[in-house]
Simulated assay, not measured.
Amino acid sequence: MIRQNGYVFTGGPGAGKTSVITALAAKGFPVVPESGRQIIQEQVASGGTALPWADKELFRDRMLAAALQDFEQQPGNGQPVFFDRGIPDLIGYSVLENLPVPAVLEEYAATLRYHPRVFIFPPWEEIYQGDTERKQDYATAVATYDAMQAAYTAYGYELLAVPFASVTGRVAFVLANL
């Protein structure tokens, strides 16, 4: 199944994806926020272990369940929908964390397709900030970017690097390249 109107934003943490997603939502575009932060918040609040610093595999599997639900619930009216990460991100995460990549994850990445053009946000040290959910250091953010680039390339997506610019400039770049 192909979601031609589903545009994925990927890259390492702290590169500005969420800021651009938020600005696009303010312009009235449908957006799908990243599930990882929500899962972390829920797990911390409930004392769960599906956390990237506790049980990486369970965390990945929870993100996969959320990504599948997000993919299925995406509006089909033809208007662009912007995803803060997609299913191939979970392959990149698995490789980055030395986790086995389940065959079902590979199957989903191959058959549940987004628009062939994916917007990748390069690491940007000047804006990178950690917080209570984002505990990675900048070097890990760079390694994550590399893993996402490899995962999306392996599944035949065209990667379009979002330039370093203001949020307004980045939004304009995305909209000009749909």
Results as ranks from 00 to 15, higher is better:
M1W: 02
R3D: 13
F9R: 08
T10G: 05
G11A: 13
P13Q: 15
P13H: 15
G14V: 06
G16M: 11
V20H: 08
L24H: 10
A26N: 15
G28P: 04
P30V: 08
P30N: 12
V32H: 01
V32E: 02
V32N: 04
I39T: 10
I40Q: 00
I40S: 00
I40K: 00
Q41A: 13
Q43K: 02
V44G: 00
P52L: 11
W53A: 03
K56V: 14
K56Y: 07
L58K: 14
M63K: 01
L64G: 09
A66Q: 15
D70S: 11
Q73E: 15
Q73L: 10
Q73G: 15
Q73F: 02
Q74H: 08
Q74P: 05
P75R: 04
N77Q: 10
P80Q: 12
P80K: 10
F82A: 01
F83R: 09
R85I: 10
D89K: 02
D89T: 01
D89A: 04
L90Y: 01
L90K: 05
G92D: 03
G92A: 06
S94D: 03
L96N: 03
L96D: 01
L96Q: 06
E97S: 08
V101Y: 01
L105W: 03
L112M: 13
R113Y: 00
H115M: 08
P116Y: 10
W124H: 12
E125T: 08
E126H: 14
E126V: 09
Y128Q: 07
Y128I: 04
G130T: 11
D137Q: 09
A139H: 09
A139E: 14
T140L: 14
V142F: 11
V142E: 13
A143K: 15
T144I: 07
Y145A: 09
D146N: 13
A147G: 04
Q149C: 10
A150I: 07
A154Y: 05
Y157H: 14
Y157L: 07
Y157S: 02
E158S: 14
L159E: 01
V162P: 11
F164L: 05
G169P: 09
R170V: 08
R170A: 04
V171Q: 10
F173M: 06
F173I: 06
L178R: 11
